[in-house]
Simulated assay, not measured.
Amino acid sequence: MDTNSLAHKLTDWRHELHRHPETAFDEHYTSAFLADRLEEMGITVTRGIGGTGLVGTLKKGTRPNAVGLRTDIDANAITEQGNPPWKSQNPGRMHACGHDGHMVQLLGAAWLLSHTVDFDGTVYFICQPAEEPGKGARAMIDDGLFQRFPMDSIYGLHNMPMLPAGQIHVRPGGIMASEDNFTIQITGKGAHASSPHMAIDPLVTAAELILALQTIPSRTANPLDPVVVSCTELYMDGAHNAIPSHVTIKGDTRSFSPDVQTMIETRMHDLTEAVCTGNGATYDFSYTHEFAPTRNTPANTALVARAAHRVLGSEQVYDTCEPIMISEDFAQYLDHVPGAFFFLGSGVSNIPTENTMLHNAGFDYNDHILMTGATVLAEIARQALED
């Protein structure tokens, strides 16, 4: 199979995976498909790591150097609204984030490295479940990923439809934010809507608190530290003519360092206590850390840029891109080995707002960049093993 034939094969594989999306830790068909394709290339596969995860091992030469290339394999709990010929056949599930494309690009890199690229060392192809809920990387690590497959560095990518197709964006340090979730339950005293003076209104308290929380990014955080505090859900037990007794606020926060995460949590609790106490209400406060910030190692970031320059030319590579506030559990790996995560532009239109965004029910991966991602990943592995 030459590279032109490989490009067609990658498209066929992507469409097959798109037809059969599976959500976190239920990726049985997906995992078997990936394992079978890797084994057909002569790559040794170890299955069942962290549940439905797997690792393919390709060794050439005698050097002990090793590099990891990682893909996410789970889909979203979304009903697909588009109508491509390869539309999801699993109701309520679809590849709305492009993990079908990521998997195929890893398979493409595996084929290139096993058939056409010379290197001396070991490449591990890491197929990770449950990225969407942020549980899969931890599951693989807890199952001995780095003890069973010791590697010197690790790399991963994500498509970005707001970027022009084929561009590579990367940066040293923080490239993706943490995600922390919060739940604030406010308890007041319900009453008839006509008699607010007989109530302790938790809804008015919640409204005051929601506005107060916005002082965290605007008045507490350093203006040079990106911080997002979003209240995203509001529940209550009232009616159109009844002041409720209970209100629950849910939401999430985003930042780029543990110190800022701690500041947000502390300030959020202090504001909740002050606003509720001031209104005569009581509260219950919960704050959980879901995703750590993804922070690229500078040397590995430079390697990604060099590899992308070699494959695509300097005009397609941006090595000091702006960070974004979404989250990824690839960050868990960077606590154990150095590495870098980068973005691959997947926009169909040159006008960013005309492209269908990630997690949209009409999203479909841009097949024209499958070989781009595969070739860049293969070159990253080759250069990593030369260092």
Score class of each variant (00 low, 15 high):
Pro223Lys: 11
Gly280Phe: 01
Ala191Thr: 04
Gln185Leu: 10
Glu27Thr: 09
His8Asp: 14
Ala308Val: 06
Arg219Cys: 02
His197Val: 00
Pro150Lys: 10
Val117Tyr: 11
Arg310Met: 02
Thr23Val: 15
Ser88Met: 11
Phe256Arg: 05
Glu40Phe: 01
Pro202Trp: 03
Tyr235Gln: 14
Asp252Met: 11
Ser178Glu: 09
Thr116Val: 07
Ile264Tyr: 08
Glu315Phe: 08
Glu132Asp: 13
Gly156Glu: 03
Gly82Pro: 04
Asp152Met: 01
Tyr318Val: 08
Asp335Trp: 00
Thr248His: 04
His28Arg: 15
Ala191Phe: 06
Val170Met: 10
Ser194Tyr: 09
Asp367Ala: 12
Gly50Val: 00
Arg171Asp: 06
Glu322Met: 09
Leu344Asp: 02
His240Val: 08
Arg306His: 14
His368Ile: 00
Arg382Ser: 03
Thr282Gln: 09
His95Asp: 04
Leu107Asn: 07
Ala96Thr: 06
Val55Lys: 07
Ser31Glu: 00
Ser153Leu: 02
Arg148Met: 09
Gln89Glu: 15
Tyr235Ser: 03
Gln167Asn: 11
Lys9Tyr: 15
Gly190Asp: 05
Val204Met: 08
Glu179Leu: 12
Gly82Thr: 07
Pro258Leu: 09
Asn355Met: 10
Ala207Phe: 00
Pro164Asn: 12
Ala374Leu: 01
His336Phe: 13
Arg37Asp: 01
Asp335Lys: 15
Asn300Asp: 15
Asn296Ala: 12
Leu58Ser: 09
Thr288Ala: 14
Glu27Ser: 09
Thr272Ala: 14
Leu370Met: 12
Asp367Phe: 10
Gly136Ser: 08
Ala299His: 13
Thr52Gln: 11
Ser286Asp: 11
Leu209Phe: 02
Tyr318Gly: 01
Tyr283Asp: 00
Ser314Glu: 13
Phe256Cys: 12
Asn83Ser: 04
Tyr29Glu: 00
Ala239Met: 07
Asp329Val: 05
Thr57Phe: 05
Phe25Asp: 00
Ile380Trp: 08
Leu163Ile: 13
Phe343Ala: 02
Arg295Cys: 09
Thr79Gln: 15
Asn355Leu: 11
Gln383Pro: 01
Gly144Gln: 06
Thr3Ser: 12
Asp26Phe: 10
Thr248Trp: 02
Thr11Asn: 03
Arg63Leu: 13
